[in-house]
Amino acid sequence: MKRYGHSGLPRRAVIQGMAASFTLSLMPRASAGLEAALQARFGDRRPDTGGVELEVSSLVENGNSVAVTVRADPSQPSPSALHLFMPRNPEPWGTSFHIQPPALAEFSTRIRLSGSQDLMALAEWSDGRLGATAVSVMVTLGACADDLYGEF
């Protein structure tokens, strides 16, 4: 089951609305870690809603390796960078992906999630504008003592 953030579907308005409510209502109570990470990378600039899609499973079996795809909205001019934040990780900044033509504004990778959280993808345009989307991901707990660490 894949969940999409902002998309170009007819439901776009609804989804944008949902994303907007995230931006407005959830951002302020997002972790201090995320706020600091955004501040460090973007200064006082804050993202508008949309312009980027985040594809990730909504239910994750193990937080050690989670497939994600981030892509810019193809109907807009290509951004110069895509960013991914995992607000509840010890380090919220996940990755930044810098793009020059003829590369497409899209990448896939696998990330770590230290628990259920709202992932945030951002697109950054060369004029300084930012666009964001967020997707809620639930990470389930494994059986037994999966925090065992060492030689076993």
Binding site: S57, S65, A67
Partner: peptide, 9 residues
């Protein structure tokens, strides 16, 4: 017992 993501992997 794997979910679709890990099966695909």
């Amino acid at each position: 017992l794997l979910g679709p993501d890990l099966r695909a992997l």
